[in-house]
Design a protein around this nucleic acid. Structure first.
Length: 744
RNA sequence: GCGUGGUUAGCUCAGUUGGUAGAGCGACCCCUUGACGUGGGGUAGGUCACAGGUUCGAAUCCUGUAUCACGCACCA
C-alpha cells in the first residue's frame, strides 16, 4: 500500500481509534511480563506500578472517569516509553450501597420490592446489573485509550478480593481493632442502613427553632429545632457557672404530661454547654444525638429511644405514636402553643445531615454496630495506633502528596477522626465473617445473646449450629485493600513482591479521606509498608457555570463518549490536560475540545507533508544537517530535556502546552516553511528532509502519551518505511507505544 | 469556629529557584490554486483583587484587608 493513501482524507478519529486500540491490545504490551518477554523492557528495569481507581458498577463512564483515565494513561505511557516495567492495573468496585440503591430504584419501576424478592433473589438481580455495568465500563474504558493490563483485572467483590477482606477482618478482630458496640450512629431511614461520618453530606437549609418549656411549672426554657425528640429527654444541661440556672442544678423535675408522655428531667451542669446559645439550657436527648449521648454518659443519665428505624415515633398516645417525626413535630408544636408553653419561634440556617447516596435526612439512633478502633495501640506495629500508622508516612515524607497542601488537609482529618463504623444493613457487599451460636432457646426467643461469637476466614464446620451476621461491610473496607488485594494478597506471589508498594496513586481530591487514607491504614497495618509512594490528586470537572458535572444535569453535562465521536479522543485528552493543574477544578467546555481537534488535524497534515517530502530519503543512513538545521535540532533537544524534567515532576499541563506550541509555531511554521524553500531551490534539501524526519519522529514520541491515537496511526504509516532498512537489528518495535522516550 | 485554595486579557486558565506578563477560545483585520478552509497569517486587549513591607527589582516572598469557593466541626 502506498504510504500516503491514508492521508488522502482528513484525519478521522472514528475510523482510527478502535482499530489502534486493538493493535495495542493484540501486541500484548499492556502487560509488563510480555514487554519483558518480547524484549522491549529489560527484566531488571525500574518498576512503575499504579492501580486504576475502580469505577463503581453503577452505570457508565462520565467526564470524571475520562479525566482519571487520561492523566493515568499519560503517566503509564510515559513510564513505559522510559523503559520502565510498567503495570497499570484495572478493576471495578461493587460500591455496595450505591449499586444496591440503584437496583432498588430500577425494581421499584417494575413495582417490585427488595424484601419481596428475598436476600438471595435480590442479590442475583444486583449481580446481573453489576455485570452489565461492568461490561459497559470496560468497553468505554477501552474507547478512552487506556493502556491497562486487562489480564490482571480485579473486582472488589470477586473471590480473591473476598478472601483478602475476610483475612483482614479476622486479623483486625484478633488484634482487638474491630469491636462491636452500641452507640449513636448515623442511620439512613431511606437506605435502611448505618453510614459512616464520611458518607454524610451537610446541606444548609432554613429551619425553625422553637423555644419553650416542658410544662407550666418547669423552671427553664430550652430551644430546639426538633421538638419531637424532646419526649426522649432525660435531663436539661446548663453551664456550671451560669447564674441564671445555678440554683436548679441537681434537682429532678417530673413532667406528668408532655403531649401525653411523662418525663423525668434532671438539671445537670456541663461545661460543654454554651451560655450564649439559645437560652443557655440544653434539653438532653441521649438516644438521638451524638453530643447528648456523650453528656449522658458523663452524668450517667438514662437513655430513652423514642424514634425507630423508619423515622417514626415509638412513644406517646395516638396523637404521636407511629407518626413520622416531621408530623409529630407539628403536633407537638401545636400542643405547646395550646398550652402556652411556646415562647419563641424563629427561623435559622441549619446544616442538615443527609446521606450521600440516598439524600435522606440522617436520624441519629443508638444501634449495635461493628467499628474499627483507630486509637488502640497495636503490639506488632510498635504499639502504634491506626491513626499514627496513617499519619507517619505522610509526615515523614515516605508518601508524597501532590499538590503538597493536601497534606495539611490529610493531617487535619486524622486529628478529628473517630472510630470507623464498618457495618452496613444492606445485602450487596462482603458479608461480615462472624457467626453467632444458634441454640434452641435462642431460636425460640428470637434473640441471640451473642455471648460467644465465631470470627474466622471460613465458616465454622458445624455451620448448622451457627448463624452468620446479616450485615455487610462498608464498601471502603475492601477499597482500602486495593493496592495489594489486586496483586494477590494474602497469597504470597511475585506480583506483590514486584509491584508493591505501588509507585503512584492518582485520584480525585474528594477521595483523600474515603479512599487514600483507608489504603494507608490497611497497607500499614497488614503489610507494614506504605501502599504508594506518590499521591496525585486531580480536581473536579465542572461545567462552565461552575457546577460539578453529573449525569442529572442532562444537556449541560458533557458526555465523554459523544465528544470522542465528534472530535476524537486525542482532542478530549488535550482539553483535559492543558490548563489543568493538580488539586484545582477544571471547567470543561466544548470550544476548547474543538480547538484541540484542530491541533490533531494539524499533526495529521504536517505529517503528510513530511512523509511526502522524505519519500526518497534513506532513513537508515540520514544525510548530515547543515548549520541552520543543526541549530533547530539542538533547540528541539533542549526542549525535550526541559519537558522530560517536567514530566518527572508531574507537570503534564506545561508539557502538553509546550509541545503544542513547538509543533505549531516552530515545527509547522518555521521548519516546514523553511524546508519548502530549501527543497524548491534544491539548496541543502537533503538536510531539510533529514530534519523534517528527525523532528517528526521525536515529536510523535513525545506527543504519544498525550495524543496516543493519532501519533500511533502516523507511526504505523511511517513504520514500513523505517523497517525496510538493510540491517535487521535496526528494525523497530511494532508500535509507537513501546518506543523509547527520546532522552538523549 | 478551625483549616485549605482561588482572585492574572471579554471568557477559561497557565506562569517553581523574585528580573520589563502568556496560551486557548472569543473579537477585529488580512490571506485563499500552498501539508492543512475542521485552514493559514496578524492586530487589539492586562497599574497580575486591594493596602503595606522586604528587595536594586515582586504576579511571584512576608503581613494585613476584601471577596469567592471548598473541607472539617458545631448546629440546643
Amino acid at each position: 500500500m502506498e504510504i500516503n493513501d491514508k492521508f488522502l482524507k482528513p484525519y478521522d478519529p472514528k475510523e482510527t481509534e478502535d482499530k489502534i486500540y486493538k493493535l495495542w491490545e493484540d501486541s500484548g504490551f499492556f502487560n509488563p511480563d510480555i514487554c519483558v518477554e518480547k524484549g522491549v523492557t529489560k527484566s531488571d528495569a525500574e518498576i512503575f506500578s499504579m492501580v486504576l481507581p475502580p469505577p463503581n458498577v453503577t452505570g457508565s463512564l462520565h467526564t470524571g472517569h475520562a479525566l482519571v483515565l487520561t492523566i493515568e494513561d499519560i503517566m503509564t505511557r510515559y513510564a513505559r516509553m522510559q523503559g520502565k516495567k510498567t503495570l497499570w492495573l484495572p478493576g471495578t468496585d461493587h460500591a455496595a450501597i450505591a449499586t444496591q440503591s440503584k437496583v432498588e430504584k430500577l425494581l421499584e419501576k417494575e413495582g417490585i420490592k427488595k424484601k419481596d424478592l428475598g436476600r438471595e433473589e435480590f442479590l442475583k438481580r444486583v449481580e446481573k446489573f453489576a455485570q452489565e455495568s461492568h461490561d459497559t465500563i470496560v468497553r468505554q474504558t477501552k474507547k478512552m485509550g487506556a493502556s491497562l493490563d486487562w489480564s490482571r483485572e480485579a473486582y472488589t467483590l470477586d473471590e480473591k478480593r473476598n478472601l483478602a477482606v475476610r483475612t483482614t477482618f479476622k486479623q483486625m478482630y484478633d488484634d482487638g481493632l474491630i469491636y462491636r458496640g452500641n452507640r449513636i450512629v448515623n442511620w439512613d431511614p431511606k437506605g435502611q442502613t448505618v453510614i459512616s461520618d464520611d458518607e454524610i453530606v451537610y446541606e444548609e437549609r432554613k429551619a425553625k427553632m422553637y423555644t419553650f418549656k416542658y410544662s407550666a411549672d418547669f423552671p427553664i426554657y430550652i430551644s430546639t429545632t426538633r421538638p419531637e425528640t424532646k419526649v426522649g429527654d432525660t435531663a436539661v444541661a446548663v453551664h456550671p457557672e451560669d447564674p441564671r440556672y445555678k440554683d436548679y442544678i441537681g434537682k429532678t423535675y417530673v413532667v406528668e404530661d408532655f403531649c401525653g408522655v411523662k418525663l423525668e428531667i434532671k438539671i445537670i451542669a456541663d461545661g460543654t454547654v454554651e451560655r450564649d446559645f439559645g437560652t443557655g439550657a440544653l434539653g438532653v436527648t441521649p438516644a438521638h444525638s451524638q453530643t447528648d449521648a456523650e453528656i449522658a454518659q458523663r452524668h450517667k443519665l438514662p437513655s430513652k429511644q423514642v424514634i425507630n428505624e423508619f423515622a417514626k415515633m415509638t412513644i406517646g398516645d395516638e396523637r404521636i405514636l407511629n407518626k413520622k417525626t416531621t408530623e409529630a413535630r407539628e403536633i407537638i408544636v401545636s400542643w405547646l402553643k395550646e398550652n402556652n408553653l411556646l415562647e419563641k419561634e424563629e427561623e435559622i440556617n441549619q446544616n442538615v445531615s443527609t446521606a450521600e447516596r440516598t439524600g435522606a435526612i440522617i436520624e441519629p439512633l443508638p444501634k449495635l454496630q461493628w467499628f474499627i478502633d483507630v486509637n488502640k495501640k497495636i503490639p506488632n506495629r510498635e504499639n502504634k495506633s491506626l491513626k499514627e500508622l496513617m499519619l507517619e508516612p505522610v509526615r515523614d515524607g515516605k508518601i508524597k502528596i501532590i499538590p503538597n497542601h493536601f497534606e495539611k488537609v490529610y493531617f487535619n482529618w486524622i486529628e478529628n477522626l473517630r472510630d470507623w463504623c464498618i457495618s452496613r444493613q444492606i445485602w450487596y457487599g462482603h458479608r461480615i465473617p462472624v457467626w453467632y451460636p444458634r441454640t434452641k432457646a435462642e431460636l425460640s426467643s428470637g434473640q441471640a445473646e451473642n455471648k460467644k461469637i465465631y470470627c474466622n476466614i471460613n465458616p465454622p464446620e458445624d455451620i448448622e449450629n451457627w448463624e452468620q451476621d446479616t450485615d455487610t461491610l462498608d464498601t471502603w473496607f475492601s477499597s482500602g485493600l486495593w493496592t495489594f488485594s489486586t496483586l494477590g494478597w494474602p497469597t504470597e506471589n511475585t506480583d506483590l513482591k514486584n509491584y508493591h508498594p505501588t509507585t503512584m496513586l492518582e485520584t480525585g481530591h474528594d477521595l483523600i479521606f474515603f479512599w487514600v487514607a483507608r489504603m494507608v491504614l490497611m497497607s500499614q497495618y497488614l503489610l507494614g509498608e506504605i501502599p504508594f509512594e506518590n499521591v496525585y490528586l486531580h480536581g473536579m470537572i465542572r461545567t462552565m457555570d461552575g457546577k460539578k458535572m453529573s449525569k442529572s444535569m442532562g444537556d449541560k453535562a458533557i458526555d465523554p463518549l459523544d465528544i470522542i465521536i465528534k472530535y476524537g479522543n486525542d482532542a478530549l485528552r488535550l482539553a483535559m490536560i492543558i490548563g489543568n493543574t493538580p488539586g484545582n477544578d477544571l471547567k470543561l467546555n466544548e470550544n476548547d475540545i474543538r480547538g484541540y481537534g484542530k491541533f490533531a488535524n494539524k499533526i495529521w497534515n504536517a505529517s503528510r507533508f513530511v512523509l511526502e517530502k522524505i519519500s526518497d530519503l534513506d532513513l537508515n543512513n540520514l544525510p548530515k544537517l547543515d548549520e541552520e538545521d543543526a541549530i533547530s535540532q539542538e533547540e528541539l533537544e533542549n526542549l525535550i530535556k526541559e519537558i522530560t524534567k517536567e514530566m518527572n515532576e508531574f507537570r503534564y499541563s506545561i508539557v502538553a502546552e509546550k509541545l503544542y506550541h513547538y509543533f505549531w509555531n516552530t515545527f509547522a511554521n518555521i521548519i516546514i516553511e523553511r524546508s519548502k524553500k530549501k527543497i524548491l531551490e534544491n539548496n541543502n534539501s537533503d538536510s531539510a528532509k533529514a530534519l523534517l524526519y528527525l523532528q517528526l519522529t521525536i515529536l510523535l514520541k513525545t506527543l504519544h502519551p498525550f495524543t496516543p491515537f493519532i501519533t500511533e496511526e502516523i507511526w504505523q504509516i511511517l513504520l514500513p518505511r523505517r523497517n525496510t532498512g538493510t540491517t535487521t537489528q535496526n528494525s523497530l518495535a511494532p508500535v509507537l507505544m513501546v518506543e523509547k522516550w527520546p532522552n538523549d
